[in-house]
Amino acid sequence: MNFEESFVAAVQNAVTPSEADILIARGVVLETIGGASEPVVTTEFVDRWLEAIGCSRPAPRSKFTALPAKEEGRRLADPDPMDPHMAEYRGTHAVRWAVSQLVAEGVLTRGAGNNYAMQPERINVDYPGGSSGVPVLVHSPIVGNPNEYHRFMPVHRDPAGSEVLLPVEELLDGLGDILGARGQTMVRESRRALQRGLYLASSSLLAAASEAAWFNLARAVPNAPSALAKKVIDGRDVAEVIRLTEQKLRELKPSPGGATITEVVTQAHMFREVRNYALHPVEDHDSDRETWLTETGATLLAIASRRYFVKMADLQRRLVESGHAK
């Protein structure tokens, strides 16, 4: 069968990894090898990549089923890039790109083994009354004889870590108090938007979740000044809520650290700018914000959001504890 050109182009697009796909793969590879006790087979990288984007492998021996097109003049509808068959193919190539880059950067090298379980070597030992072999597993880089299945390991014993796009429920773990029910919903919907290529919506929803977190942080301020309390009740003017809450954070004893407070406040204002630009892209000099509304930018925001919200949750806990102490 000769497929129409538009369908072939859509399939090509669905299985070709983007820069954001490769970025996610890099994080997955680094996280996986960082916690591994032996060289990791590439199929595990692909499994972790699929998990990170909210997908899974297709059923064994299944094939992609094209649906009839609803558009006049077309036979077949464009495939969904999140279909397991498309995602698996795209993830495999994203992992290849990530691994090749990390090898070139001196972070990865080939490790012994293939798709089968690692088998120990044996050290021959004679003893009174007999002889036998002691099984050992020593992992070191391997050179030569490439196999169909390759495993990789860090060049150094302690490779540099990397933040990774976590599955959304892992991202939200322990963040219920700081985000609240609505904030958690916005994070989940942000991830769904990211998976569907709705990058403006994804970044905007994360920015809205940031605002929800700041109102919840402000609610934890013990004996909050009337100006802050009124802003929280009104549910408006997040910039002022951030400013007034920051003042109370800097009064905490013991201090959580000025650098930590500054980092969280700076990221909060960055999220505000992203959301404002998404709604009102009016100034030419603000066009750099457009980066956060692209696939790569939205992915980076999603990766960094866990660290940001965890720090806010810690500040919330400190505020609550300071109120109990009083």
Rank of each mutant, 00 (worst) to 15 (best):
S226M: 09
L102P: 09
P60G: 05
H280Y: 07
Q101E: 05
W214R: 04
E295Y: 04
N216M: 14
P167H: 03
L200Y: 10
A298Y: 10
P81I: 14
Y199E: 02
P141V: 03
R192S: 11
T266M: 08
P225R: 08
R250I: 02
G180W: 11
G106D: 00
E290R: 15
W97K: 06
P281S: 07
L319Q: 11
D314S: 10
R96F: 10
Q267W: 14
P146C: 07
T65C: 00
A201Q: 10
S100M: 07
V241D: 15
K253S: 09
A36K: 03
L205R: 02
N147F: 09
A268D: 12
E283I: 13
A224V: 03
I233F: 12
A213S: 01
G111R: 00
A14E: 01
L206M: 01
T245H: 13
R243G: 06
E251D: 05
R151Y: 04
G235Q: 06
S132P: 00
L206R: 09
A112M: 10
T294C: 07
A220E: 07
A10M: 06
M186L: 14
G180F: 08
S210Y: 03
E240Y: 11
Y116L: 10
K230C: 02
D237F: 00
A181R: 09
N114A: 03
R57N: 00
E283A: 03
A25Q: 05
N147I: 13
D234M: 03
H280F: 00
E163A: 09
S210W: 09
L205Y: 01
T32E: 09
R272W: 11
R243M: 12
F271K: 06
A227T: 02
D288P: 07
E38Q: 15
R196Q: 14
V264S: 00
A36F: 02
V41D: 12
S6V: 11
A112D: 15
R96C: 04
G174N: 07
S37H: 13
D78G: 06
V238Y: 07
E189C: 11
K230D: 11
A302H: 06
D288C: 00
P167Q: 07
R219H: 03
R306M: 06
H150L: 13
K230W: 12
V46N: 12
L137C: 08
